[in-house]
Every structure is written in C-alpha cells, then in structure tokens.
C-alpha cells in the first residue's frame, strides 16, 4: 500500500481508533479502600450463590 493510499484510508478513522492506539493500555484506576471492599463483597456473594446453584443442579442430576 502506498503512503498516499494509507493517508486516504486513515482519514476515515479517528486517531485513537487505530490498532496502534487501542493496543496501548489505558491507565490503571486507583480504587478506594471502600470500593475495593464493596467489590470483593459482591464477588464473594456471587461465588457463594453460584456454588449453591451449581450444587443444586448437580444434585438434581444425581437424583
């Protein structure tokens, strides 16, 4: 592809839309202590309920 063709193509994309740009990681967000605790609490809640659902499902299979 010639430089002119590349230039023509690239003008229809936003600069931050190029693979070159999207493959660069965005910065890490610093979570507050309260937010971290809340997220971990939600995570534990979800794991516990999932385990209950899976246990029930497996029990139904073996009945």
């Amino acid at each position: 592809m010639t430089a002119a063709e590349q230039q023509e193509l690239v003008m229809f994309l936003e600069r931050d839309q190029l693979v070159f740009d999207t493959s660069r990681p965005v910065g890490r967000l610093e979570l507050s202590r309260r937010m971290s605790i809340a997220l971990w609490a939600l995570r534990v809640f979800v794991v516990v309920v999932s385990a209950m659902v899976i246990y029930t499902f497996v029990s139904q299979l073996t009945q």
Partner: peptide, 20 residues
C-alpha cells in the same frame, strides 16, 4: 508521525468510508 496502518485498520477504514 503517522502510526503504522494494519490490515485491520484498513478493513475498518473501508467500512467507515461508507458511513462517512
């Protein structure tokens, strides 16, 4: 400086050309 244009960019750009 223009970043390197990948085939993925080129394909997406063709679609955006039609939208444009």
């Amino acid at each position: 400086p223009r970043p390197p244009l990948t085939p993925e960019d080129a394909a997406r750009s063709h679609d955006r050309f039609r939208v444009h």
